[in-house]
């Protein structure tokens, strides 16, 4: 079995603070992997490393078997293959949401305008936002903004999607609509890595759970086993706190 993405002993420090202390895991094509753990456990940093927004200090990250941490590689073509969605949406406030989505395909892929418009409209329709295309980000609810951010990442046709606590900044009643989008993506075969505090969702939708604590993966496995029968004391302690 070949892996879509493999992390091998990845380390990352900010100054004297060791955020990732040797993290290894792998993701098969079409899998949904959930990273859980308290704030500061290294989940976000790891996702930013996979997207090459941060350079790793040590270890390797293999995408389709090719090491993407090679400093001689141009990071931009790789970033295009890996979409990321952030906790705080990070939409561009001075453009309407359609322009938010179309900017990168237009500039990077040089997609012809008519084709791009058709694709973008289809994406908005697929995620139930067709009537909001000409709105500006601040005219939308948090849940709608986050769905636009997901559409914006999908418009680049990535092979993997990374989600960094995408529901943490949302009002509770808006969390559901974003999680529905994630379910939909998974059912369509997207490879997904998700850092989340939504334990219910992780349990129901994930193929594999990784529990991170203080920069290492303490325990990983299928959700049923990890949630009902955790092997490590730290996992048990964390789960008892959040569930």
């Amino acid at each position: 079995m070949t892996y879509k993405l493999q992390l091998i002993d990845v380390t990352k420090s900010f100054g004297t603070l060791e955020v990732c202390k040797g993290i290894s895991f792998d993701v098969k094509k079409g899998e949904l992997v959930c990273m859980i753990g308290s704030s500061g456990s290294g989940k976000s940093t790891l996702l930013r490393c996979i997207n090459l927004l941060e350079a790793v200090d040590g270890g390797r990250i293999l995408l389709d078997g090719h090491d993407i941490t090679d400093p001689d590689l141009d990071p931009q073509p790789i970033r295009r293959r890996i979409g990321i969605v952030f906790q705080s949406f990070n939409l561009f406030p001075h453009m309407n949401v359609m322009e938010n989505v179309m900017l990168a395909p237009r500039r990077v892929h040089r997609t012809p305008k008519a084709e791009l418009l058709a694709e973008t409209t289809a994406l908005f329709e697929r995620f139930g936002l067709a009537d909001r295309m000409t709105h500006y980000p601040d005219q939308l609810s948090g849940g709608q903004q986050q769905r636009v951010a997901i559409i914006r990442a999908l418009a680049m046709k990535p092979e993997i999607m990374l989600f960094d606590e995408v529901t943490s900044a949302l009002d509770p009643e808006l969390v559901g609509e974003v999680l529905d989008v994630l379910r939909k993506l998974k059912s369509e075969g997207m490879t997904i890595i998700l850092a989340t505090h939504e334990m219910g969702f992780a349990r129901e939708a994930a193929d594999k759970i990784c529990f991170l604590d203080q920069g290492i993966i303490v325990e990983s496995g299928p959700p049923e086993q990890l949630f009902t029968n955790p092997k490590q004391a730290r996992t048990r302690e964390f789960l008892s706190r959040v569930m």
Binding site: N51, Q76, R79, V108, R152
Partner: peptide, 9 residues
């Protein structure tokens, strides 16, 4: 970061 992650120069 958002622009970078989309592959913009």
């Amino acid at each position: 970061a958002a622009a970078k992650s989309l592959g913009l120069s």
